[in-house]
Amino acid sequence: MTDATDTTAAFHKLHVPGDPFILPCAWDVAGGQLFAEAGHRAVGTTSLGVAAAIGAADEDRETLTATANLAAALRKVLPEQPLTCDFEDGYGNVPESVVEAVREAFAGDSAGGLIVDGINIQDSRQGLMSEPAVLAAKAEAIKEAFPGLFVNARIDTFWVGEHNLGEVLERVDAYTDAGADGIFVPGDLDLKTIETITGRSRAPVNVLVSPRYSRSTLAEAGVGRISTGSLPYRAAMSEALRALRILDDDRPAETANVLSYGAFTELGRVSVRPHPGGR
């Protein structure tokens, strides 16, 4: 297995403002393997998909064990792939409990290494924003305990419906001052807003995939990472429901563009190496 520091260094280097990589977010091992086989250079997880898989609500601090188990399984089958996990709000109110949650979920070898290369940690829970100092303190404590870990600080101001760009910029400063390696601002942002954020941030900026803008357009806006978030999970469930509707309509099943049963049984037998170059 590749030393964790190799994948961690590779993950940091992927974040280039103006040349963003697409981060596909998995909810199970097979999805992560397929994303890697497709040539993506890193794999993430989606808290929504993980929560839905165990019948929990997203952002309700019920997914720590499931996230830890998924990360361990992904690391086993993707030993040379940079891996990052959605870590909700850190599963705790104070920095000490958040650091312990990271250690508990992702403990690696006896030397204190972690099995993941990054985490995504947000400043809201169940639609309510915390004060900027709360996530800043968590980020600072995580970086002190795990200096190499890529900490992506997620600013949820727009996500929860509070359209206050000034507040977002204040949080950008607070979180980068605290040592965050990346800034994530989810929401359906227009290009001018994105450009203002990337122009302000000293750390690479992450946005969600957009129904309005392509990768190249977001690159021109200065973005360094484009996350799929829960889109692949929601798309998969939507397609599953469509397949069932076809059967309900007394039509034959559509299988022409569906991965075969054998494709998935093969995934269970192999570890996937990242494709050179990738996406």
Results as ranks from 00 to 15, higher is better:
236 A>M: 14
201 S>E: 04
164 N>M: 10
134 V>S: 11
106 F>G: 07
97 S>E: 11
225 R>Y: 07
224 G>F: 14
107 A>P: 07
164 N>P: 11
229 G>A: 06
203 A>S: 11
216 S>C: 10
160 V>Q: 08
109 D>M: 00
109 D>N: 08
178 A>K: 05
158 F>E: 02
114 L>E: 12
131 E>Y: 13
118 G>K: 02
162 E>H: 11
171 R>G: 06
232 P>D: 05
159 W>C: 09
111 A>K: 06
189 L>P: 06
128 L>V: 15
109 D>C: 03
196 T>M: 11
201 S>I: 05
169 L>K: 09
157 T>R: 04
125 R>D: 06
187 G>F: 04
102 V>Y: 01
119 I>Q: 01
221 A>S: 07
191 L>N: 07
205 V>D: 04
198 T>Y: 13
235 A>R: 10
182 G>V: 03
128 L>H: 09
176 T>P: 09
140 E>V: 03
176 T>S: 11
204 P>L: 07
189 L>Y: 08
109 D>S: 12
110 S>C: 04
128 L>P: 02
226 I>R: 02
152 N>M: 08
116 V>H: 03
177 D>C: 07
123 D>L: 03
191 L>T: 10
230 S>R: 09
202 R>S: 09
122 Q>V: 12
111 A>S: 12
98 V>C: 00
216 S>E: 15
129 M>R: 13
99 V>I: 00
225 R>D: 09
111 A>I: 01
133 A>G: 15
235 A>V: 15
237 M>H: 13
116 V>K: 04
154 R>H: 00
188 D>L: 14
129 M>P: 05
156 D>F: 00
213 Y>D: 05
210 S>W: 05
191 L>S: 08
149 L>V: 04
123 D>R: 05
113 G>Q: 14
146 F>D: 02
180 A>C: 14
220 E>Y: 13
174 A>G: 13
108 G>F: 04
101 A>S: 14
204 P>K: 05
139 A>H: 02
133 A>L: 11
151 V>D: 00
233 Y>I: 10
113 G>K: 13
117 D>K: 02
143 K>R: 10
119 I>H: 02
237 M>T: 11
178 A>I: 05
156 D>S: 00
117 D>E: 04
230 S>Q: 10
120 N>R: 05
167 E>K: 11
176 T>K: 12
166 G>S: 15
122 Q>L: 12
155 I>P: 00
174 A>D: 10
148 G>D: 08
106 F>W: 14
110 S>R: 08
216 S>V: 14
113 G>N: 10
99 V>Y: 02
110 S>Q: 13
148 G>F: 02
147 P>R: 04
121 I>Y: 05
142 I>E: 01
159 W>I: 06
190 D>R: 15
179 G>L: 03
191 L>M: 14
125 R>F: 10
146 F>I: 01
135 L>Y: 07
235 A>W: 10
197 I>T: 06
236 A>V: 15
203 A>I: 07
188 D>R: 14
166 G>Y: 09
214 S>E: 05
119 I>M: 01
115 I>Y: 01
193 T>R: 06
154 R>D: 03
216 S>Y: 13
162 E>P: 07
